[in-house]
């Protein structure tokens, strides 16, 4: 498949936006300017970007605890995202969601999720809605290797296949479920082996190669739109930072060599080198993108810091359509 320069530029831009957002969030957390848990997506940018450049705003995604990258790739704006992480009233969810529960339906992002495996069944429901309405949209569930061990994943995959729903199962296999290596918790190496058990095709792609991911997604999406049901894409990838935070307790559960080796395959820098070698773009072009987006992120941080915290009354708003009388303390 020959991708247009526009698509390639778009992929690159999405990856850089994720990288800059995550690096900025990491620095803010280290400076104690960002409350709460933070699971950084750095290293995995190609997956969200490759998938989301194959989707439209009307297609839906569900995400994970490591969800900022998915939202950025799906079209999330820096300002309301940064404000949400800081718990500010101008955040996408008025500061009620935070890093682990951020969502925005305008761009079809049904939510990051603090519960491992919880997103996949929700994507099945979104896919069912698409099929019922006949709108030609697809729902993509992002999830990690570890989440395929939990019951919710099994139930989602089985149901989507049984009902032949337009759902894409996107497994980001970064080899670790939190702090535990994959081979300690499952007897298979490739998550894609599980696909056959549900009756769907599965494909392994290089998770550091945004183009490969994009192409696999287009194929899976076409199949879903034709009414042939779900597919499983397993992207072999890696997170450069720790399970949460940046340094994370300073405890070792993987070797420095392993981390360094994967960093050699940085999805953004390798992509840039390929584009320059192919004559599609120049170093100056890329430098311009980084500089422009850096300015955007600085502006977003300022915006978030200047934004007000929500009114305390908001604690009891959005619990129900209307708060029942007497339900307080």
């Amino acid at each position: 498949m020959e991708l247009s320069t526009d698509v390639l530029t778009d992929m690159h831009r999405r990856m850089v936006r994720i990288r800059l957002f995550e690096e900025a969030a990491g620095k803010l957390a280290e400076a104690a300017k960002l409350p709460g848990f933070l699971h950084l997506y750095v290293g995995q940018e190609a997956v969200a970007s490759g998938v989301c450049t194959a989707l439209t705003d009307q297609d839906q995604i569900t995400s994970t605890h490591r969800g900022h990258g998915h939202l950025v790739a799906k079209g999330g704006e820096f300002k309301p995202m940064m404000a949400e992480l800081m718990g500010k009233a101008t955040g996408y969810n008025k500061g009620k969601g935070g890093s682990m529960h951020i969502s925005n339906l305008d761009v079809g992002m049904l939510g990051a999720n603090g519960i491992v495996g919880a997103g996949a069944p929700i994507a099945v429901g979104a896919g069912f809605g698409n099929k019922l309405k006949g709108n030609g949209n697809v729902a993509a569930a992002f999830f990690g290797d570890g989440s395929t061990n939990i019951g919710a994943f099994h139930e989602a995959a089985n149901m989507a296949c049984a009902l032949k729903l337009p759902v894409l199962f996107i497994c980001e296999n970064n080899e670790y479920g939190e702090f535990t290596a994959r081979d300690k918790t499952m007897a298979i190496t490739d998550i894609v082996d599980r696909a056959a058990g549900y009756g769907m095709p599965g494909v392994i792609v290089d998770g550091m190669d945004v183009v490969a991911i994009h192409e696999a997604t287009i194929e899976a999406k076409n199949r879903a739109v034709r009414g042939e049901g779900p597919s499983l894409i397993e992207a072999k990838t890696y997170r450069f930072y720790n399970h949460h935070g940046v340094q994370n307790l300073g405890l070792k559960y993987r070797t420095d060599d392993e981390v360094a080796e994967w960093k050699q395959r940085d999805p953004i820098f390798t992509f840039e080198d390929r584009m320059i070698d192919a004559g599609t773009a120049t170093r100056d072009d890329f430098d311009g993108v980084w500089a422009e987006l850096r300015a955007d992120i600085d502006e977003a941080i300022q915006f978030a810091e200047d934004s007000p915290v929500p009114d305390v009354d908001q604690l009891l708003v959005d619990v129900y359509t209307e708060m029942p009388a007497g339900a307080t303390s």
């Binding site: 718990g87 008025k94 500061g95 009620k96 908001q314 009891l316 619990v319």
Partner: peptide, 11 residues
């Protein structure tokens, strides 16, 4: 007790 609301991020 805690207020009758999901545990909040802000506040």
């Amino acid at each position: 007790c805690g207020w009758d609301t999901p545990y909040p991020h802000a506040h």
